[in-house]
Design a protein around this nucleic acid. Structure first.
Length: 259
DNA sequence: ATGGTAGGCTCCCTA
C-alpha cells in the first residue's frame, strides 16, 4: 500500500499539478495539508474520477486537511481532545483495503510564527494534545500512519544550516523536544528509519531563492506505529515536484507498506 | 546584502 503526505499550499491552485502527480504515482492513500478551502470548494470530482474516496476537514482561507483513498474510508475523526485551536488541522480515518487495514491521519501542525509569539505557545500546546491523542491510538496496536506537515525538523541533518535554524520555530530545541516526545511514544520516522544518514529536505521557502540554493528543511513526516514500521518497504521524497512551475513549497513524501 | 515569494483576501494575514 502506497501512502503519501503532501502539503499542497491550496488545492485549488495546485489541482492540475496534484492530479498529474496522482495519475503518475497512483497512491493508495493521499494525505493532504493546507488545502485552504471549504469542503464545498474542494475539487472532489477531479479525484473521484480517478477512483478516490475523499474525507475532508476544510475551512475558509487557511489550513485544511484531507484524506483521499482508493479504498473505503471509515471511522473519520476531525479533532482531538485539548486541541488549543479551532482550526482544520487534523483528520484521521481507517482505510479498509482488501487484505489490510490501516489507520491514517493527516496533520498540519501550526507554524508558530516566532519564538516569542502567542502562536508559538499554541504550537507547543498542539503537540501536547496530539501526543495525548496518539498515546491512546497506540494502545490499539494497529497499523498506524500519521502523515503531515509537522513544521519541525527533527535533527541537525534535517536542516540546510544549523546556525540559521537555531532560533527558528521550525528547529528551536523547545519544539524539537515536542516532536521527539511524540515519536518516543513508540513511533518511527519512516524516512529516517530507511535512510539513516541521508540529507533530504521536504520544504523550501518561496523566499530568498531557497529552492535554488537548496536551503531546505525536512519538516514533513510519516510517523509509523511499530505494526506499520514492520511492513515498511520504501520511503522517498519526490523533490522534483518543488522544481516544477507554480509548485507547492513542500514536496510529497511517499512510503510503501507490505500487506 | 538585513533582502524576498506565494496564496487568499482585502488594503493585511499567514507561511
Amino acid at each position: 500500500m502506497k501512502i503519501v503526505t503532501w502539503n499542497v499550499n491550496s488545492i485549488r491552485m495546485r489541482k492540475d499539478l496534484v492530479v498529474n502527480w496522482v495519475k503518475e504515482n497512483k497512491p493508495d492513500v493521499l494525505l493532504l495539508q493546507e488545502t485552504k478551502c471549504l469542503d464545498s470548494d474542494f475539487p472532489k470530482e477531479d479525484f473521484e474520477d480517478l477512483g478516490y474516496n475523499i474525507a475532508l476537514s476544510g475551512q475558509k482561507t487557511f489550513n485544511g486537511v484531507a484524506i483521499l483513498s482508493l479504498y473505503p474510508i471509515e471511522d473519520i475523526i476531525k479533532d482531538f481532545d485539548n486541541n488549543p485551536l479551532d482550526h482544520a488541522r487534523y483528520i484521521e480515518a481507517v482505510i479498509v483495503a482488501p487484505e489490510s487495514v490501516v489507520r491514517v491521519a493527516s496533520v498540519y501542525v501550526p507554524n508558530g510564527e516566532t519564538l516569542d509569539s502567542e502562536k508559538y505557545q499554541y504550537k507547543l500546546k498542539f503537540f501536547d494534545a496530539l501526543e495525548s491523542h496518539v498515546s491512546n491510538l497506540l494502545k490499539l496496536n494497529e497499523s498506524l500512519v500519521i502523515g503531515g506537515d509537522f513544521n519541525v525538523a527533527p535533527e541537525e541533518i534535517d536542516t540546510y544550516s544549523v546556525a540559521d535554524s537555531l532560533d527558528s520555530v521550525l528547529f528551536h530545541i523547545s519544539i524539537r523536544k515536542k516532536l521527539r516526545s511524540l515519536i518516543n511514544l513508540g513511533l518511527y520516522d519512516a524516512y529516517r528509519l530507511l535512510h539513516p544518514k541521508e540529507q533530504q529536505f521536504s520544504w523550501w521557502d518561496y523566499r530568498r531563492g531557497a529552492w535554488h540554493k537548496n536551503h531546505g528543511l525536512r519538516i514533513d513526516h510519516l510517523l509509523l506505529s511499530p505494526e506499520a514500521a514492520d511492513k515498511l518497504d520504501s520511503v522517498s521524497i519526490d523533490q522534483s515536484q518543488r522544481g516544477l512551475d507554480s509548485p507547492s513549497d513542500h514536496a510529497p513524501i511517499i512510503c510503501e507498506l507490505r500487506k
